[in-house]
Simulated assay, not measured.
Amino acid sequence: MSTGTGGGQWRVDFDAEVVFSNGGALQTQGFRLDIPGDDITDGALGELLVRHLGLLMVGSTRITRKELLQEPHKGSRNTAAAAAGRRTAELTGPATRAGWPTGPAGTGDAGDAAGTGGAGDAGGVVPELAALVDLPVVLVRLLGSAHPVADRLALAPFTLTGHAVLVQTGRAGGPYLTEDAVALLAEQGAALVATDSLEHTGPAAEALAAAGLPAVTGLTGLEALPATGVRLHAVPFPGRDTPSIRVYGVTDDQH
């Protein structure tokens, strides 16, 4: 059975039983994984589950229910298929804007620079260009969630140090990050936070600025990014009269 909307990426929702050769078993219900194509056999799905969870001493797997879903990949571990060539995705939209640090990474009054298509307050301190380009990406996809806001648990599976953390909410309005998530990003040394949400003010935005973390809101085209293997470039253009920023993602050759 298959359902879904969207582009060319597929996931599978399934129930399974894993039996270990040294005794014991593991059961899953409603488990979801990215798959490399638009279909998968039960045997291949069992192997994918074992790789994803890093299970050892598996004697057998049995898939008891399976449903194919056409929806963007979420970044399941060890499930990606190789992609040929180098791809660039434009992520800048009419409402893209950047909020610059006011805390440890810089000093000054809080403020933000408007993105393409508008002027804004150029407060805050723009980081050095090297801190904004060629950043490895953590893509947190919250599409379909009843409350698409990333908290600490949503970020816990990922390596955040030195990464640009992209939170895809699938909606323009509403928050995208909690204050406790900001604390984790600061603790782990994330380099930048970005989202398709337009929310650029409020407690989370203030916490990001105070923690010295640049924040880019109003991105578009995040659905074009693969779940892994992306590097982000957020290039600010100088000039206080019409401050702007251009953001794009590049998929690594080896992804």
Rank of each mutant, 00 (worst) to 15 (best):
G4C: 14
F14Y: 14
V19Y: 03
V19G: 02
V19S: 14
S21D: 12
N22C: 04
L26Q: 06
T28W: 03
D34L: 04
I35W: 11
P36K: 12
G37S: 15
I40T: 10
A44I: 06
V50I: 12
V50Q: 06
R51G: 00
R51S: 01
H52V: 02
G54K: 10
T61Q: 07
T61D: 00
T61C: 03
R62W: 09
I63C: 11
L69W: 02
Q70L: 09
E71L: 09
E71Q: 11
S76G: 08
N78K: 09
G85W: 05
A89D: 04
T92L: 02
R97T: 00
G99Y: 00
W100E: 00
P101A: 09
A110E: 05
G118S: 11
G123Y: 02
G123V: 00
G123N: 02
A130H: 01
A131N: 05
D134K: 04
P136W: 12
V137K: 08
V137P: 04
V138F: 07
V140C: 14
L142C: 08
L142P: 09
L142K: 09
L142R: 14
L142S: 06
G144Q: 10
S145K: 11
P148K: 03
V149F: 07
D151G: 15
L155W: 13
L155I: 13
L155K: 12
P157G: 06
P157C: 14
G162R: 10
G162C: 09
G162E: 10
A164L: 08
A164E: 05
V167Y: 06
V167R: 00
Q168P: 03
A172R: 13
Y176H: 15
Y176R: 00
E179M: 10
E179H: 07
A181I: 12
A181G: 05
A181Y: 14
A186H: 15
E187R: 14
Q188K: 14
G189R: 15
G189D: 15
G189V: 15
V193W: 05
T195L: 07
T195S: 14
L198M: 01
T201V: 14
A205R: 00
A207T: 12
L208T: 07
L208V: 12
L208I: 13
A209P: 04
A210Q: 15
G212T: 12
A215N: 07
A215Y: 13
T220H: 07
G221Y: 10
G221K: 09
L222A: 07
E223L: 14
L225I: 13
L225H: 13
P226K: 08
G229I: 03
H233G: 03
A234P: 01
P238R: 15
P238M: 05
R240W: 08
R240M: 04
R240I: 04
R246M: 11
R246E: 09
V250N: 03
D252M: 04
H255C: 03
H255E: 06
